[in-house]
Design a protein around this nucleic acid. Structure first.
Length: 447
RNA sequence: GUGAGUGUAGCUCAGUUGGUUAGAGUGCCAGGUUGUGGCCCUGGAGGUCGUGGGUUCGACUCCCAUCACUCACCCCA
């Protein structure tokens, strides 16, 4: 015999989990549609050259590669890879469909694959839920991306969350004006860890990366102009005069976005300007966002930003774009932690069983009537003694049991028992449905 | 890719300084009379102690390797 094992970082979803996932997906896609985004799907596999070089050197190594068919594969060559995110495939799709009317607003919920080590809330195959606006450089597009995240997380009743925003060019300006523009990456990589390692930790890493103390002192002075507690627009206003012209332009861009976000109805308290927010993906060029919750300490729930150069790598001319990605697995982790899930679920409203073989046809006729009336019906394929029929219904949390025995079959009736309180009836076919419909709602975690 | 920890019944875990037939709870199955679930009582099935070596008279227990999982780092959804 072979031992049954699932591949590392991959998961099966049992019915209980599937019901939760589908419910969240339904809510998200409804919000996306409400914002006027259109659905799209792209293949799991992309040509390797489409994927490579878009995410940064580190991330390229996390792309799953597929061996070539035939001779090349035996020699270890690969030409295809599993998609690493939904943004790069979107850029490819837009470049291949020049007739699409721009701006193109699309939503997409599909799995992506990353070959890193699994951890809490982190898997090798996971579902991303993306919305993007391609073909507009207006800050309205940025603002809508923030607003749709806010609407989605609000619709899911996730509790408290915070959307952090920053701007790639603000970061660059901070490095420039402190004289370490040539070490921008070193500045960012260390700064991004501030929440985990604190100021001292960042200082230590900056020093280790060869930044002169004079520069790091000036960086801190800049960062202190925009304290975390401050209202985002105040923080931006305080920082602006200290930056280069490029940085000031970026600040103004962010200010416009935040004003528009407010106009779209997002409470100001949800937004925080975070000058330490860097984000890893190479393709971002402007505003960047990230959503975090306080509750379980997992990574961000969503991430995104503006990427005005990505489509151009496939097209030869740039098309501006901005988008966000919500992580379904992390959303579910938060929902589960918050316990807003309700109890276990039932596979059906009524269980139908026959006491012996001769009664099966009559039982099936009853099930057909239930189903025709839209009631989900679980049929016991083998005849069951009364005790077992009720036990099955009880353990599956099915609220009603309908049983046909010799007496009922002879009389043309069905025995119906309401499991919650033990009320029971023997009824002709025509009288069954009102009793079913009047009963307690079918237990369902997703309401 | 780096570091640490854990692997005993379907599930959650006990298992004393190495010593006879490896336990509990839960779940599962069957009973507690006639066509009635949950609660209670009784009984039962179920384990190559992750796998492979080694040390020893003797290994679930000690050592090595290997695999799997978990957590942290890196990075991210």
């Amino acid at each position: 015999m072979q031992k049954a094992l699932i591949a590392r970082g991959m998961r099966d979803f049992l019915p209980e989990a599937m019901r939760r996932r589908r419910r969240v997906i339904e809510i998200l896609s409804a919000v996306f549609e409400r914002f006027g985004f259109e659905p799209v799907e792209t293949p799991a596999l992309e040509r390797l050259e489409t994927l490579e070089g878009k995410y940064g050197e580190e991330s390229d190594r996390l792309i799953y590669r597929v061996l070539k068919r035939g001779q090349g594969g035996e020699e270890g060559e690969s030409d295809l890879g599993l998609r690493y995110d939904l943004t790069v495939p979107l850029a490819r799709l837009v470049a291949m469909n020049p007739d699409l009317p721009l701006p193109f607003r699309r939503w997409q919920i599909q799995p992506v694959w990353r070959a890193d080590r699994p951890q809490r809330g982190r898997y090798r195959e996971f579902l991303q839920c993306d919305v993007d606006v391609v073909g507009s450089s207006s800050p309205v597009a940025d603002a809508e991306c923030i607003a749709v995240v806010d609407a989605a997380l609000t619709a899911l009743d996730l509790g408290e969350f915070e959307i952090r925003v920053n701007h790639r060019r603000v970061l660059r300006a901070m490095a420039d004006v402190t004289g370490v523009g040539h070490k921008e990456t070193d500045v960012l990589v260390a700064l991004d860890k501030i929440e985990r390692v604190g100021r001292e930790g960042v200082d230590a890493e900056w020093a280790a990366r060869g930044l002169p103390p004079r520069a790091t002192a000036r960086l801190w002075a800049l960062l202190d102009l925009a304290p975390a507690a401050a209202r985002p627009l105040d923080a931006l206003a305080a920082l602006e005069p200290a930056l280069s012209e490029e940085g000031r332009a970026a600040v103004r861009d962010l200010e416009r976005i935040l004003h528009l976000v407010g106009a779209l109805g997002v409470p100001e308290a949800r937004i925080r300007f975070d000058p330490t927010l860097a984000r890893g993906l190479d393709y971002y060029t402007g505003a960047v966002f990230e959503t975090v919750v306080v509750a379980p300490r997992i990574g961000s729930l969503s991430g995104g930003g503006r990427y005005d150069r990505l489509v151009g790598t496939f097209l030869g001319r740039d098309i501006p774009a901005v988008g966000v990605s919500l992580g379904l697995e992390r959303i579910l982790a938060v929902i589960e932690e918050a316990g807003t899930l309700g109890g276990p679920t039932a596979p059906a409203r009524v269980l139908v069983a026959a006491l012996d073989d001769a009664c099966l046809p009559a039982a099936l006729e009853a099930s057909a009537r239930f189903r025709a009336a839209g009631q989900s019906t679980w049929v016991a394929p083998e005849p069951l003694p009364m005790k077992k029929a009720l036990r099955q219904a009880d353990r599956r949390r099915i609220p009603f049991a309908a049983v046909v025995g010799p007496d009922e079959a002879a009389a043309g009736t069905t025995f119906l028992r309401r499991m919650a309180d033990g009320a029971q009836w023997v009824l002709p076919a025509a009288d069954l449905l009102p009793h079913l419909e009047a009963g307690p709602p079918t237990p369902d975690a997703t309401g």
